[in-house]
Design a protein around this nucleic acid. Structure first.
Lengths: 389, 389
DNA sequence: CGTTTGACTGAATCTCTCA
DNA sequence: GTGAGAGATTCAGTCAAAC
């Protein structure tokens, strides 16, 4: 166990060195224990991080309330009532307080366009969701992890508890959180990803075992779950904080996908497992995913005209060939007395509020009508080639 | 419209006479508007019922959606959102207060061993769950209604909101709520019923329409959902109260299954629809259980990547080994500058109109190349096994 | 009469940039 | 901050009309 004495953090392990994708942030990042597991209370440790420095929080908080020491304030003062015999109401109160405190700390370190994931079961997820909303987080989706192989209900008194819930939220209503819609669509064989995810629980070789052959952590999450979370809502090089690191599934997947992580964990036993696990992983190189059209460089229609790819005076048609217009020198279209951009004229002629001219208008090709968007694709491909050279 | 002047309730309709399975309770039941729809606020009306007189509450309260501006589909058609006044709350505090009030009224009329169901979406369900717990209800399960045919996310900004949540709770931790475990197991082809229910939304002939052909109620629930709830958690002759009766799905299914209902509803228009609907039903009539064509999720190639069964960066080959591609994190393949799904890239590279990527692409195994489909088969077999366990 | 095609619809917190 | 304009975006299903 090496200790980083220069830092405010009690760093137990640093399985792999920091990665930086934005040199201008080096000063701030240098203060952060990137790709390290820090032992101790997550609230105190999050309070040691710079404000607005983190891209994503992934939290799988405990909800079995034999917490005892888990319930302490940032200043390590004891939360009243914890050691007393609780009735149900007091327990919930204490849990709410615990939730409010770690979530406020998480909120402070989150960038304005950052996002948070919190998972739980019906025991705690309603408290979690309520506190999120009360702290002005903006819920983007609730996600159902549908377990393919849940533990059956042995006593036949309930429905098989076959799922857990994750909440994905941004820091505010008008924030712009990262979401790789097209990568998710690709992951789901071409149809948009739904809010219910069918994935197996963590078993077999993936499940970490202690020396006694028993599971190292009672609630180790499957890497497939984190894969989807991290791929969908972060970019390579992003910083992901996991306040309840456990045996490090978040860190393992972050490393595989080329993201930075910071893990906070109280139990040394878990940290030992996690650091060993993460050290073994080879860092991912090929982490490219399907890009969205929005992320591609903008190519105005006029650009195609300038380049001579579409000649002035060419006729363009709607898909069924009924509507037509003429291309003008400035990249606008004219149809009778009406004219405008490819989008505006399309909307005008179809009496629609808006229209994507790229897919609306077609050129007469050798094999029938083809959307003008295909020409744009060629230009974009050319541009990408030129950028590489 | 006939009014029952003897009663404290302003009864708009009594589609069918009361049913009594326990003569000793006749006095109390006589005070209750059994199998009637009562117009007015549900809190005031519940307060008129005797304490501990009801076996089940089923509540589908307003969700407090807080919709923004207009939304249109990619084809520019307009999406009819829920803009009704009954779903408007000024603040979250106002919604919480509303929830506390109706739930306290519901709690009072519930028998000690009675149970409550409340449904909602991520907009309100966390508030609902928190209030339930705060009022000492004991959550038995949270149930996910997984919609086979949800409305897509038209702007590509989120995961498809493809489910709603129901909470099933008893009045106290030590209560003994009704649960027909074996009936549920039977309904699920001999396997324990899980906490996620895959059912279609209410469309087609089941969906009530107004004179203008438009939907009579913006959020009518499918009978199949209520069928499962009522069958699982009530006995014939039980009294079911629905405080937000709407167009009466609860009443319709209750009548079909030989249970008594009491419905509270403010909007006269909905009451007219509901009473007409329920009057038409003959008791014992079977519930419209619509089967969807594909209820079980597919196993996309991306799922194998998430689960680590195919590693990111792995090379896949055509059968003869001439063509190759690299697996990306989102389950797409890349070959040089070209990328796409297993099917699309196969078609692209062979210049074919289409291609079955599952049989086209192969992995290098110990005994030569094997199609990626063999891995999928293993996963499917695993899932089938888990479903039977 | 059977089949195909196209229009329509569902509890939705549904864009981004630049002037 | 606000408005205008460019530009991106949908799945499963029902039903009626057309073929």
């Amino acid at each position: 166990m090496k200790e980083n004495t220069k830092s405010r953090f009690k760093v137990i392990t640093n399985p792999n060195p920091p990665k930086r994708n934005d040199p201008s942030r080096d000063v701030q990042l240098a203060e952060m224990p990137l790709n390290q597991i820090v032992q101790g209370d997550c609230v105190a440790n999050m309070n040691n991080l710079p404000a607005e420095s983190v891209d994503l929080i992934f939290a799988d908080p405990p909800y079995n309330l034999q917490l005892g020491g888990d319930l302490s304030r940032p200043d390590n003062s004891h939360v009243a009532g914890v050691t007393e015999a609780w009735d149900q109401y007091d327990t919930m109160d204490a849990y709410d307080l615990f939730t409010q405190e770690w979530m406020a700390a998480a909120r402070r370190i989150l960038k304005p366009n950052g996002a948070i994931w919190v998972m739980g079961s019906y025991h705690n997820i309603f408290r979690v969701g309520t506190v999120l909303q009360d702290q002005q987080f903006w819920i983007l989706n609730d996600i159902i992890w549908r377990k393919t192989n849940p533990m059956p209900n042995f006593r036949g008194t309930r429905f098989t508890n076959a799922h857990e819930t994750l909440i994905w939220a941004s820091k505010s209503e008008d924030a712009k959180p990262t979401f790789h819609y097209d990568a998710m669509k690709m992951l789901n064989e071409g149809v948009q990803m739904r809010s219910d995810w069918t994935l197996p629980i963590c078993t077999g070789r993936e499940r970490l075992k202690g020396g006694d052959g028993k599971k190292a952590h009672p609630t180790q999450k499957p890497e497939s779950l984190l894969h989807r979370v991290i791929l969908a809502t972060t970019n390579p090089g992003d910083v992901i904080v996991d306040p309840f690191f456990g045996t490090g599934t978040t860190g393992a997947v972050a490393k595989k996908l080329g993201r930075n992580f910071i893990g906070f964990e109280r139990e040394e036993e878990y940290i030992i497992h996690a650091s060993r696990r993460i050290a073994k992983i080879e860092e991912g190189q090929t982490v490219a995913v399907t890009k969205s059209k929005r992320s591609e460089p903008k190519v105005p229609f006029g650009n195609l005209v300038e380049r001579g790819l579409v000649k002035i005076g060419t006729k363009v048609f709607s898909k069924n060939g009924i509507l037509s217009a003429t291309v003008r020198a400035d990249g606008s279209l004219q149809s009778g007395k009406q004219s405008g951009s490819i989008h505006k004229l399309g909307a005008l002629l179809t009496n629609a509020p808006s229209c994507n001219g790229w897919t609306f208008w077609h050129l007469q090709g050798p094999s029938g009508l083809q959307p003008i968007d295909t020409i744009r694709s060629e230009v974009r491909a050319e541009m990408a080639e030129a950028a590489q050279a």
